[in-house]
Simulated assay, not measured.
Amino acid sequence: MDRKSVKVVIAGGFGTGKTTLVGSVSEIPPLTTEEVLTQASIGVDDTTGVEDKTSTTVALDFGRITIASDVVLYLFGTPGQDRFWFIWDELAQGAIGAVVLVDTRRLDTSFAAVDYFERRGIPFIAAVNRFFGECPYTEDEIRAALELDPAVPLLWTDARDRASCKETLIELVKHAMTRLPVPG
């Protein structure tokens, strides 16, 4: 069997659930670079809306999931704070696409990730992380707030739920495949 390895980026703002998603769906123990938030981050990291957050990714999260007998996804989670954005270029290199996690409590934290992938022409989907069940906004309201192109899929996920995250990743792969050049 000829197995295909595919690189995927999990991106989004600070506290949107990237580490949680990678950890919940990875079939191997995920590699994380979580560090405790300290007094030094006060005034640097905006914890508005995520006041209970006690740690943060400082480099990347890494996991792996087999989504078909011949397709393995390698997951690279980005750090969310702007001071670590320089790492995104390395993590996105060679990726077929990205999942931009959206926290509707703080929609503005997703703007930079959407812009990043749009500017680079990297296929992405937006996935609303349903941290607390229901979402207070409609799909149209979220699309308008994020200024999403109609061709960008928007779906609902729960970063804590393996099945939900797996479906999100499958949707990303399907979307990315529609953007691949046709071999000639």
Results as ranks from 00 to 15, higher is better:
R3N: 15
S5N: 15
V6S: 13
V8W: 02
V9K: 00
A11E: 01
A11I: 02
A11S: 13
G12N: 03
G12L: 04
T20V: 15
T20N: 13
S24H: 09
T32M: 10
T32P: 01
T33D: 12
E34K: 14
V36G: 09
G43W: 03
D45A: 14
V50T: 14
T54S: 14
S55A: 14
S55Y: 02
S55W: 01
T56R: 12
T56S: 10
D61S: 08
F62T: 07
S69C: 09
V72H: 12
L73V: 09
T78P: 02
T78I: 05
T78G: 05
Q81V: 06
W85A: 04
I87T: 07
W88P: 04
E90S: 12
G94S: 15
A95S: 11
V99L: 11
D103C: 08
T104D: 00
L107A: 05
D108L: 05
F111N: 04
A112Q: 08
R120I: 06
G121P: 04
F124V: 00
F124S: 00
A126T: 02
A126N: 07
R130S: 12
R130Y: 05
F131G: 07
E134Q: 04
Y137P: 02
D140R: 07
R143E: 05
R143W: 06
A144M: 03
A145P: 01
L146F: 07
E147H: 08
L148A: 04
D149W: 10
A151P: 12
A151D: 13
L154W: 10
A159E: 01
R160M: 12
S164Y: 07
C165K: 10
E167A: 15
T168L: 07
V173N: 09
V173R: 13
K174C: 05
K174S: 14
M177P: 03
T178G: 11
R179Q: 14
V182F: 03
P183M: 10
